[in-house]
Computed example of a mutant assay.
Amino acid sequence: MTSQTTTAATSGTWKLGDSTVNRIGFGTMRLTQHGEAFAADAVPRDRDQAIDVLRRAVELGVNHIDTAAFYFSRLRSANELINRALAPYPDDLVITTKVGPGRDPSGRWLPHATPTQLRGQVEENLRQLGRDHLDVVNLRIVGADSIAERFGALAELREAGLIRHLGLSNVRPHHLAEAQTIAPVVCVQNMYGIGASREQQEFLHTCGEQHIAFVPFYSIAGTGRTAGAITDDSGEIHAIARAHGVSAAQIRLTWTLHQGSHVLAIPGTGDPGHLAQNVAAGLLRLSQDELTAIASLHHGAA
């Protein structure tokens, strides 16, 4: 498989709100520094290289970028890099951001935003990105409590024209049902990958039935989470990767795309070579036998 001529369009498309996006997108969480995301002692990534990677992603057909104002390191801000690299923005580019969490200038995590504070977070994303509206805003939460007040605050900003579409992140099925009584939800962004629990699988399928995009995070990193891709892939994953002449990370990424046409991938990297590999994964097709072998790796948690 040659990644040189492969573009994100080979992954297929999905209607995210009122925009059609290629299913292979780009996540910016790891763009600002080397090593584990959000680590205080991490080395900032070369700014020019980060900008080049963003521009190359768009050249390769990526038109869905995931970001957040709290994605920053000592010297780098993901939103500022996006602004510098891509403004004026292509007409078909969809930028999805998240609100809820916050960090102070030193990088220390703050309590999640109150409904009143959410407007300030939305305005900060607008300022950093240099836009007069945000394409998609995900409310990211922690816990199982009601989100009605917070999601309602974002719905008001949507009515005011500051936000076009709303989504949810790190949520459970009852959160989605609650949000839908307030405003339309176009995407759910949750942790998901090989080895996902039965509940995670069922939630992914529920979103598909409702024509809501499901956007996995840590689909490549797995248990590595913010530290990056794991290295303890099973023998089955490595065997399938060898058979296709690709990396285990590409198999993980391809597998998530096979979970439904509504699944959108947002792998992130600051490395041009890894970017090309991630985009090329959208061209890869797994056989039913390979999918069955990977399915056997699921925990099947009740």
Score class of each variant (00 low, 15 high):
residue 211 H to C: 14
residue 172 R to L: 06
residue 284 L to C: 11
residue 96 T to C: 15
residue 197 S to K: 07
residue 154 L to Y: 00
residue 202 E to C: 06
residue 239 A to G: 12
residue 274 H to S: 12
residue 134 L to S: 08
residue 98 K to D: 12
residue 47 R to E: 00
residue 81 L to N: 10
residue 142 V to I: 09
residue 200 Q to C: 06
residue 147 I to W: 07
residue 264 L to W: 13
residue 133 H to N: 02
residue 257 L to Y: 05
residue 148 A to L: 13
residue 27 G to Q: 07
residue 292 T to A: 06
residue 159 E to K: 03
residue 71 Y to C: 00
residue 13 T to M: 00
residue 216 P to E: 08
residue 74 R to N: 10
residue 104 D to R: 07
residue 144 A to P: 07
residue 151 F to K: 03
residue 73 S to F: 02
residue 233 D to L: 02
residue 89 Y to T: 12
residue 220 I to E: 03
residue 166 L to N: 11
residue 59 E to S: 05
residue 48 D to M: 04
residue 233 D to W: 13
residue 199 E to W: 01
residue 135 D to K: 08
residue 89 Y to I: 04
residue 16 L to S: 02
residue 60 L to K: 14
residue 211 H to A: 15
residue 185 V to I: 01
residue 289 D to W: 07
residue 126 L to R: 01
residue 77 S to C: 05
residue 232 D to Y: 12
residue 104 D to H: 04
residue 223 T to S: 15
residue 148 A to F: 13
residue 143 G to P: 01
residue 61 G to C: 06
residue 108 R to L: 14
residue 103 R to P: 03
residue 217 F to Q: 05
residue 8 A to L: 06
residue 10 T to N: 08
residue 174 H to C: 04
residue 115 P to I: 09
residue 226 T to E: 10
residue 59 E to M: 01
residue 279 V to R: 11
residue 5 T to Y: 11
residue 2 T to E: 13
residue 85 A to W: 13
residue 12 G to N: 04
residue 120 G to K: 07
residue 285 R to I: 07
residue 76 R to M: 14
residue 263 V to L: 05
residue 208 G to Y: 01
residue 58 V to P: 02
residue 229 A to K: 14
residue 44 P to S: 11
residue 10 T to Y: 01
residue 285 R to P: 04
residue 188 V to P: 03
residue 40 A to T: 05
residue 183 A to L: 04
residue 295 A to M: 12
residue 12 G to V: 06
residue 70 F to W: 13
residue 147 I to F: 09
residue 221 A to H: 07
residue 274 H to T: 14
residue 70 F to T: 03
residue 107 G to P: 15
residue 136 V to C: 10
residue 179 A to D: 00
residue 31 L to S: 08
residue 107 G to W: 03
residue 252 R to K: 09
residue 4 Q to C: 08
residue 214 F to K: 00
residue 195 G to Y: 13
residue 260 G to A: 03
residue 174 H to T: 03
residue 18 D to Q: 07
residue 219 S to Q: 15
residue 288 Q to W: 00
residue 170 N to G: 15
residue 17 G to A: 07
residue 171 V to D: 05
residue 86 L to G: 09
residue 242 R to T: 10
residue 49 Q to G: 01
residue 1 M to F: 11
residue 220 I to P: 09
residue 3 S to L: 09
residue 141 I to M: 08
residue 8 A to C: 05
